[in-house]
Amino acid sequence: MKNRLAQLLLEKSYREGDFTLSSGRKSDYYFDCKPTALSPEGSYLIGRLFLDMLAGRDVQGVGGMTLGADPLVSSVTVVSWLEKRPLPGFIVRKQSKGYGTNQFLEGLGNFRPGDKVAMLEDVVTTGGTLLKACERVRDAGLEIVAVLAVLDRQEGGRENLAQAGYELSPIFTRADLVAAKAR
């Protein structure tokens, strides 16, 4: 499954050129996970691999920051149901609703205060977006016990997350994808 996902990611999500990342950094490659995560096979493989990574962990659900994590959360929730290990999901908004409950988290009604959750992210560069999402999740009363990503660009995100008390577990590092590309 992991080898097939690497092929799909390289085919659909990896581009070389001159890019500016959300962190403001310049890069000679860009990784947009959405085309893979929104394809039927890619969605299944990501959901399956993330669910496997969570096996044996006390986790009551998964979530992440919109928009990158939206298809990842959906993938895991559906695959978890099919595997009879149901995990509900939540999405962290970039801004609060501004009306009604004015909340940052959608899907919070599926959780109780203190529930243990895993954060999902498509690409980690510096970890800034992920750290902001983690703060909002903690503020909502949930406990983060795992942080998973499709790709760790290996540009400081793992270290920044570790300083905040989180261990990043990616499906792939940039080195993994470069090695897969060479094959």
Rank of each mutant, 00 (worst) to 15 (best):
D115E: 07
E16R: 09
L67K: 07
V79C: 08
Y166R: 07
A146Q: 12
K181P: 00
K84H: 15
L45M: 10
Y99R: 09
V147N: 02
E135P: 00
E135G: 11
R174H: 10
E106H: 09
E155Q: 14
I46N: 05
G24F: 01
K94M: 12
M1G: 15
S96G: 00
S39K: 09
V73Q: 11
M53S: 14
V62A: 12
A140D: 06
F90V: 10
G165C: 09
E16P: 02
M65Y: 07
Q103S: 15
C134Y: 00
V150G: 01
L161A: 03
S43P: 02
T129L: 09
D18F: 03
G128L: 08
T173N: 05
V124S: 07
N110W: 13
W81E: 15
E121R: 09
L21N: 01
S80C: 12
T101Y: 02
L45R: 07
L87C: 13
E11G: 00
G128N: 07
Y99L: 03
L21Y: 04
R183Q: 15
G157L: 01
P170N: 04
R158M: 04
S22R: 11
K94E: 11
M65E: 13
V92C: 05
L142S: 03
F19I: 07
V178L: 15
E106G: 10
R48T: 13
A146H: 06
Y166E: 04
T20R: 14
R174F: 06
Q154G: 05
V92A: 06
D122F: 02
S74P: 03
D70A: 14
F104N: 00
D152Y: 03
V76H: 05
